[in-house]
């Protein structure tokens, strides 16, 4: 999927140290997350387009170790 050009209003961050390689994020939001060969999370874009913000929130909630954070950036 193509990431939106320019900065988005939401900043998505993953803590790869905390990530326990569950694959939950890639399963619920494959447009935003992938996994390396070792199972660790790979973020496809830190700026989810508007139509994927809900998916980003869902992935953060599914993460079993709270390794995914969403930050709302000021306009």
């Amino acid at each position: 999927m193509s990431a939106q050009a320019g900065p988005g209003r939401v900043l998505l961050r993953v803590d790869t140290g905390a990530c326990c390689r569950s694959g939950a994020c890639s399963l619920v939001a494959p447009d935003l997350f992938d996994q390396g060969d070792d199972g660790k999370v790979l973020l496809k874009t830190p700026h989810p387009p508007a139509d994927l913000i809900e998916a980003a929130e869902e992935a953060a909630d599914y993460c079993p170790v709270s390794a995914i954070q969403l930050e709302i950036l000021p306009e």
Binding site: R21, G23, S26, L27, P30, D34, Q35, D37, D38, G39, K40
Partner: peptide, 8 residues
Amino acid sequence: LAGEFSVK
């Protein structure tokens, strides 16, 4: 086991 059970 993580690579084995990866979504891919």
